[in-house]
Design a protein around this nucleic acid. Sequence first.
DNA 1: GAAGATTGAAGCATCAATCTTT
DNA 2: AAAGATTGATGCTTCAATCTTC
Lengths: 149, 149
Amino acid sequence: MTQAIDEIGLDAWRAFITAHAAVIGAIETELAERNLIPLVWYDVLTVLSEVPGRRLRMGDLARRLVLTRSGATRLVDRLESAGLIARERAPEDRRGAAAVLTPRGAAALRKAWPVYAGGISRLFLAPLAPSEINLLATALARVRDHVDR
Amino acid sequence: MTQAIDEIGLDAWRAFITAHAAVIGAIETELAERNLIPLVWYDVLTVLSEVPGRRLRMGDLARRLVLTRSGATRLVDRLESAGLIARERAPEDRRGAAAVLTPRGAAALRKAWPVYAGGISRLFLAPLAPSEINLLATALARVRDHVDR
DNA sequence: GAAGATTGAAGCATCAATCTTT
DNA sequence: AAAGATTGATGCTTCAATCTTC
């Protein structure tokens, strides 16, 4: 116990960790109960839907989702098997492959959004005051950028 | 997009998710680089160290760590192989087993704490103002309790 | 040889089935 | 039959090795 952290700092840390586990777990359960796509899939499809051409090189996708390259490969494998993504060979560099959002992928995204958004609203935002939401957004973004310095 | 969440609410959510991934990932990497125990192990040992007798029934341990029973079994298996925990048959109910912290487990905990605490301070608390830390602690605890309602 | 991506092997988590004791 | 715990099977993630193209 040589390191000193004041009590309130440790409380904040524990609240951060446990709140994350609780909210993510609950949303994941709700999605599964309604036979919707899991959160990781949702993340992949969202990234693709927001990018020009709805396509992204595998390496870029991995970076955006904070995954390893092989992790991205396996994840895209599963989404491809489900028909939500297609793989295309990169025309400019034949080493590269790109993941492309399919219409079925876009549809799966639209279908899952209400449940996901409902979970965020009801579980995460509802117990917070507007001023707290504002502060969380700026403070936690600062933490994230600090780590990614 | 039938569900309505205001922009700032979504920003707060995304900051929450990405900050968590960034901080946890960085701390986990630091612990691994110094050949210290991973975070899950740390959690197990901490719970045991804070409980009377430094022993806990498997089911109780699972509940506290938000794990399934089988998950707890496997985790304790590994910690037992490493000599940081011992399993003892419960005397009062021979169905039950208890995990007990060993001296080596307590030592591993003490050794990892400075790095863990350092990570919390430097990565999570440092970029935050004292008032923000206070608010995070109360707001996120409220979120967690709300989900566990 | 280096970069992009994939694959084999190993570790970890979870569900359902099983074993033991109540 | 129910509760406590473990085990088998399966899926996911990561590291290291490999293949292809630059």
